[in-house]
Design a protein around this nucleic acid. Structure first.
Lengths: 132, 132
DNA sequence: CTCTTTCAACTACACATGTAATCGTCGGTC
DNA sequence: GACCGACGATTACATGTGTAGTTGAAAGAG
């Protein structure tokens, strides 16, 4: 398989727009990013082309323009970024990250709820799914 | 305050060595990294100097050589990297990261234990701290 | 048909990063 | 005291990234 392509920070902002809705034309992406960034239109088009070169996007010709769609799935990217953080920063396992958060970060209500759900899911595995 | 300096991947490997033990001379760091990398001595010295320039390390002259010590603390770096992942990849909050792990990653026994500890700590806040 | 607008394609350029090599100097070896 | 070897200091160079500008061709305006 083609080796995993790195998506830069700025590029990921463009991907987010297309993960929200696809396909979209360059101008639509520019418009969407105008809300959240002050990037020049040319900058965004450069990023689109780099993402195409990295095969993180695909493009269909639509008359004179292109319509872009994500090729890389958001979940896969999230998985890669998470794995990378764990490996680079926390020695490869989740536990130290959790320790970090429990000790240094305030958890929102939603975080706590999510945490409980996670633990509950482990405690009471879904019927049909045996734990271990 | 001086704006937060970015530590690159390779640079962080050098920091890890000095977070383990400090101060150490360039040669000691080179020796430590010889175990885990195939970096040239010159490469490692370049990284030490860049980290100095970024003020992530400090150096004290020891005769003809320098002894390096971390200036940036490991916990602070971990906090920054974690925050950065959350903001860039998971919309800024921990919950989606947890969802991601519960759905896509297998949790080790240690992860699960840590998770339980975390939830327990929330259930039974330390004496003196009322939960809302 | 000719002129203008509008895209995509290509080019630009500074700074970061990975990965070293070269230069200059200080201290020790004969 | 001239030479060598060990260090730090400086320089190098390709590739990635942020942030555009320039070019060329095609589509629409008149």
């Amino acid at each position: 398989m083609p080796k995993p392509v790195a998506i830069s920070e700025a590029e990921s902002r463009v991907m987010e727009v297309l993960w929200q809705r696809a396909p979209q034309s360059a101008d639509e992406v520019v418009e969407a990013l105008r809300q959240s960034t002050d990037w020049h239109e040319k900058t965004i088009k450069t990023l689109l082309n780099r993402l195409l070169a990295k095969r993180a996007l695909s493009a269909q010709k639509d008359g004179r323009r292109y319509l872009y769609s994500p090729q890389l799935q958001r979940e896969e990217w999230q998985a890669r970024e998470s794995r990378s953080l764990l490996d680079r920063v926390f020695g490869g396992s989740l536990a130290p990250l959790l320790v970090h958060f429990s000790e240094h970060e305030k958890l929102s209500a939603r975080d706590v709820a999510e945490l409980r759900k996670l633990v509950d899911a482990i405690d009471k595995p879904r019927p049909g799914k045996r734990s271990r």
